[in-house]
Amino acid sequence: MPLTSTVATASETSIAELQRIASQVRRDIVRQVHGCQSGHPGGSLGCADFFTALYFNVLRHDPKNWDMDGRGQDLFFLSNGHISPVWYSVLARSGYFPVKELATFRKLNSRLQGHPTTHDGLPGVRMASGSLGQGLSVAIGAALAKKLNADDKLVFSLHGDGEMQEGQIWEAAMYAAANKVDNLISTVDYNGRQIDGDVDDVLPLWDLKAKWLAFGWDVLETNGNDMAALLGALAEAKHRTGRGKPVMILMRTEMGQGVDFMMNSHAWHGIAPNDEQLAKALSQLEETLGDY
């Protein structure tokens, strides 16, 4: 059953607009990583559509009035913190901080640390992440606080598929279902790749959907590089909150999506393009909102 059949989805024009934003986000990603000659372009590019959909369509948030507690707003936690370039791009482009600050990524005295942190007061970031496996627990805690505060907004989190190898993920999975944390929508970036190679070769996840179902979650699947499908899945996930189960979206993506020579391999997980590669990458990504 197509996910989009049960709920109203975004119009064709809004899908086109989100795709235009995602193109700029991808330019921001490769330019940030090139600028400091370090960082993680592969997973960032793969998740560009998800972040664009989330920050420009799904989240009920107020970037200009950001505070740590985020009462009355949807919250997002990035557990796989190494894909910070894509997050920084959508945070800046949606108004959390000046776009030109993206030029400071991974440089000395920057608020845009290699892995996201609250340490330097960057608006939009509520938790440090980078050491994997911790973000789901944090998202659960924030969701519990929302319930205690009678705050009806939602908590979102994103995780890598390689991150599913961390034991804490499954402690958190068990807790959230057992305690009916049903104001939580988590997503796994299911790109099948991690630093050392394919997930299936490093440590296979086997039937990931069956695992989450067995842990008591409501599970959706979608294509994370198809904006219409993604919007449909996120809308459906929101529709399924408040029903006694946490919601998981298994989101198939392609690492490096949008830059042909970065796709179909784990090679671009954590390396930066040189000048020539940057030019080639940018030639494949339309500048829609103006480079920083």
Binding site: D69, Q134, L136, S137, A139, G141, A142, A145, Y175
Partner: peptide
Amino acid sequence: ERFFQVGIAEANMMGIAAGLTIGGKIP
């Protein structure tokens, strides 16, 4: 309503505690 039994899962407990502070709780 203000007590969370997390089971034998201390790592998860620390993470949930950290998350609870976001929203003003003192875990």
